[in-house]
Design a protein around this nucleic acid. Sequence first.
DNA 1: CAGGTTTCTGCGTTTTTTTGCAGGAATTTC
DNA 2: GAAATTCCTGCAAAAAAACGCAGAAACCTG
Lengths: 249, 249
Amino acid sequence: MLKKERQAYILHQVNLHNKVLSSSLCTEINVSEDTIRRDLQELAEEGKVIKVHGGALSHSFNQVYFSTNGVYSQNQKQVIARKAISLISNGMFVLTSGGTTIMELARSLPPQLKATFISGSIPAILEYMHHPNIEVILIGDKISKNSKITVGSEAIAKIKQVKADICFLGTNAIDVEHGITDNDWEVVQLKKAMIESSKKVVCLSIAEKVNSVQPIRVCGLDEIDLLITELPANDPVLTPYVEAGVKVL
Amino acid sequence: MLKKERQAYILHQVNLHNKVLSSSLCTEINVSEDTIRRDLQELAEEGKVIKVHGGALSHSFNQVYFSTNGVYSQNQKQVIARKAISLISNGMFVLTSGGTTIMELARSLPPQLKATFISGSIPAILEYMHHPNIEVILIGDKISKNSKITVGSEAIAKIKQVKADICFLGTNAIDVEHGITDNDWEVVQLKKAMIESSKKVVCLSIAEKVNSVQPIRVCGLDEIDLLITELPANDPVLTPYVEAGVKVL
DNA sequence: CAGGTTTCTGCGTTTTTTTGCAGGAATTTC
DNA sequence: GAAATTCCTGCAAAAAAACGCAGAAACCTG
């Protein structure tokens, strides 16, 4: 990996998460901490980041820090993202839906990962595009402006042409009795197609959305292989799902 | 292998992958590293690539990672955008390529316009998505990271399915003798398909790029209906094109 | 076509850049 | 205030770049 490339990655991470730890960066990029430190120093000299003990901050950090909304739930999503990423390995074909949890996953992908990501979600695609090593396949069709995802029969047909190794679904609502549910007809159609086209289906959901129900059904729990939340796997909230045969991470 | 040939290959690789390593290039082309280094230096001096320790980067690399949001010669592009918009009316199907000029067009679209826009350019799609009244159709396929556009046979097949009223092409180089030319093979294939699928082809180009030539040919002047630059239609620079049968706005 | 000139390419050497490592200093944290 | 982490400094090895040079190829030119 080129030096500029590495620094670009660091800058990208800083601007997205508002902070970055040198310790996590050096495992992500697989270089020594000294190198990271030197990179941060250079970026700091150029005024691109603010260097602090243990890592670096973005310039907008001070503004974001005191507006407490968003940041906290983002932490939870980062936990989910980290768990999800442990399931991805080199060479995989990965299908993803849209949603903020998926975005966090996209942002946290380690730069040395070489895989192919397939999605119809515009924000997700934007993130994948910044990644140095992943191939990006865009599912085309009419764009639904509010969900920022391509919907329609063409999109579904395209999804059915692939057989992905793994599929990550950002979840709006999950419940032991009703399974996964959602509130947008077209998005549901798409998610159904994605489930059919994947060997393994992984459901990402913040604990807040566990045990909630939405009007339209996506699938039952039996079609999910794995459920990921920010909670530890043995949390009592999740036991009903384990009993229903869903693996929990 | 000829020097020009070699440099064209290098340029193609840079535009395709956003970066090249001199070490991999010299095994690919089977020349010494010195030769590669000299080639990269020449290309860097011509402003075609950015040379870094260990290889080179494309210009779009910086554009993607370091958000240098000062768009090149924006005022001229706004003039072009205004002229182009006068050609669009309600109910039209509009095909567009990518590029910064197209972006300026996308941003300047009047909010009451009701039309359908079709494109594979991610930045353009993002702009169209914000518009209240236009329908957006996204052309899907593999994403070329440096041109931020979907490329490949699927994308071309999809474009061939439509017959648009008008097609706007952002142009890299136009010349009386060689017509429209570009430097990315896959993007050229896409543009060719777009030209075929449109009743009317409009070429957007800043004056600076008029009378310049790139390695790969898109089409001849006879296939263009209209050429738009920021110059007035009677500017002497444009008279050769008028004489060649191209309408100028 | 012969002779001269220029350009191109590869090789060896030197110089610079980059990176990781070790030890001691500084800082944080409990 | 002690332990742990992080930071800095100097150093060394590896990689890459720069430089000079020489043979080869291409290209004028009369």
